[in-house]
Design a protein around this nucleic acid. Structure first.
Lengths: 250, 250
DNA sequence: TCGCGGGAGTGAACGCCGTAAACGCAAGAA
DNA sequence: TTCTTGCGTTTACGGCGTTCACTCCCGCGA
């Protein structure tokens, strides 16, 4: 049995943790070098100088290992996002939001195989929530939601009133708001949030998965245009002195 | 050698074509029943009462077979889209466009595994265009572009002027327009087209791949809201008598 | 200090998989 | 009729996920 969580880790436990980290690290390397197909138990074990059945001491099956790798990738992505968000702590919060969104695209473009593993296939969650197997996946969503809430707090923008929202949508948004402790945000803001996320994800996924090559070779200008439109729509009518400055890239 | 294309097909050729169709049909059934992993050469052959190496008379490798299946799926999707578009030939073109977009979402929701094969993984095209291996993929894009051009022709909407578009984007849009024989459309309309496609694809992909479950269980009301916003943005300021009617679902 | 329980790792084995090569067979072409 | 050619089989190779029986040795309790 493993030691209780509050006890100091055994030597055994430390070795186990190190091996576990080496497994996911090796899997991640194989993912980059050979794509998702190359991440096989035997290949990982081979790279580590072990045999495949040994990995079953650490993961119940291949799928569990892949889930762990996916969560690790979510963790790296979250880290990249937070780095971008906190790179200019004293900048305007909208500017920091744009930096974060740009960091999302950059990470995706620079890590297409990782992006595919994370966003290109269905999330495992059947009935129960995926937060148990993919804690960093939730952190990812939380990062963007936090940022959005902060923007709303510092620079509120017009959003649809509750009774302008489709009741079937409003009901779900209310539940979502409650589950995420985002009571400061009106339902309309959550609707705007989802709409923005849809656009950003859609554009980045299309680019990385090659589904915009039929029209564009360099998606970056379209991405910047979309960002401009998003900001313009948020603050339609509100001509703020530094609105233009937000859109200058660092 | 196969008979020349203009000659009547041999008996041999007919049998070959039938077997080829049975292969992709069986592969498609396995895809539905067991997911992408279940589409193995051996499983297909087993289902057909053959042995796996026989399939190499029809496909050079497993990957080629999967590409053929993907193109078949694109074909089915295109058919569904055209059926929806032509269901009410005498209706307003905007209404027909909405019907088509709704059919896209419906097909995706009802065929999640097929959707994943088509849109959830990178397109094979490396350098040369994928139109050779995936003719129906191009038909898919063409269907939406045609529809968009028709909407533009019947009910033009304001679009950014050429000099308001990022030059790096405008250059690519001009090339795209030329390659697709869409000279009737201004560059700004193509930019709007891509922006709309990004939003529709993004929302549908997020829904089908389960990446909206963190917030919504039923995405349909958000989808309808997004459609409403798209139309409202297109025809901002133009209060047409039947605008409201467009958004009533059939 | 000793003994032992149990976790870590191995080797062999099973049944999948994609793929290659050699072969048999039947049908169309000469 | 004979010959060619295309279709399908058999056999085989290496790789895969997974199971099971087994060994080894670390670290804990007596």
């Amino acid at each position: 049995m493993a030691a209780p969580a509050h006890a100091p880790p055994n030597r055994r436990d430390r070795i186990r943790a190190a091996t576990l980290a080496e497994i996911t690290r090796t899997a991640r390397r194989l993912l980059i070098e050979q794509g998702a197909e190359g991440v096989s138990l035997r290949a990982i074990a081979r790279e580590m100088g072990m045999t495949a059945p040994a990995l079953y001491r650490y993961f119940a099956c291949h799928e569990d290992l892949r889930t762990a790798v996916a969560d690790q990738l979510f963790g790296e992505l979250v880290e990249a996002l937070r780095d971008a968000r906190d790179a200019h702590r004293d900048a305007d919060i909208v500017q920091r939001g744009l930096d974060t969104v740009r960091a999302f695209r950059r990470w995706a473009v620079e890590h297409p195989r990782e992006f595919e593993v994370i966003f290109g296939r269905p999330l495992p969650a059947a009935e129960d929530m995926p937060e148990f197997d993919l804690p960093n996946c939730f952190l990812f969503g939380a990062t963007f939601l936090e940022l959005f809430a902060e923007i709303w707090a510092c620079r509120p923008f017009p959003v649809p009133a509750d009774d302008e929202i489709d009741p079937r949508l409003a009901e779900q948004l209310a539940l979502f708001r409650q589950q995420n402790g985002a009571e400061t945000l009106p339902l309309g803001a959550l609707q705007v949030f989802l709409g923005m996320w849809v656009q950003i994800y859609g554009l980045v996924a299309l680019e990385v998965l090659g589904h915009l090559r039929f029209a564009l070779r360099d998606v970056e200008p379209l991405f910047e245009t979309v960002l401009t439109e998003l900001i313009a729509r948020l603050y339609a009518g509100q001509v703020l002195s530094d609105t233009a400055g937000w859109l200058t890239k660092p």
